[in-house]
């Protein structure tokens, strides 16, 4: 049985992959309308779409406003999105996770807030 990569290495690998996909590979993604956009055009309800109230966001449309180069603009927006999603989703899931039960007196006292020693 070969050794398994540690959680840290797996996490670093997934993060690197996400950053490369969003920051570099996304430039080569298809810019054709997606399934719903395409069907709404065919079936005549595309015009009912209204502009999003966040369309003046500096990252609207997966580009950084003010950055002219499309590759750089899209790449930076993708990297920013990955980081923001990681922080928000990671923070949320970290906050609601199960806490491990203290396993010994040392662990219990080491991880406790110093509230009891006032």
């Amino acid at each position: 049985m070969s050794r398994r990569p540690s959680l840290r290495w797996v996490a670093a690998g997934v993060l690197l992959l996400a950053l490369v996909l969003a920051g570099v590979v996304s430039y080569y993604a298809s810019s054709s309308p997606d399934g719903l956009e395409s069907v709404s055009s065919e079936q005549g309800f595309a015009d009912s779409a209204t502009t999003s109230s966040t369309s003046d966001s500096p990252l609207a449309g997966y580009g950084v406003s003010g950055v002219g180069d499309a590759r750089l603009s899209g790449g930076l927006a993708g990297v920013a999105g990955v980081v923001v999603v990681l922080v928000l989703a990671g923070g949320l899931t970290w906050a609601v996770r199960r806490r491990p039960r203290p396993e010994s007196a040392e662990d219990a006292s080491a991880t406790r807030e110093p509230a009891g020693s006032r």
Partner: peptide
């Protein structure tokens, strides 16, 4: 698993940027 959850969310965000062609003039 909590750190993995944050990474999975970030990964899904990244892959959602990668539209692939599925039919004439349409992507997903």
């Amino acid at each position: 698993t909590a750190p993995m959850a944050g990474l999975v969310a970030a990964f899904v965000f990244a892959v959602q940027m990668l539209n692939f062609p599925v039919a004439a003039g349409t992507s997903g």
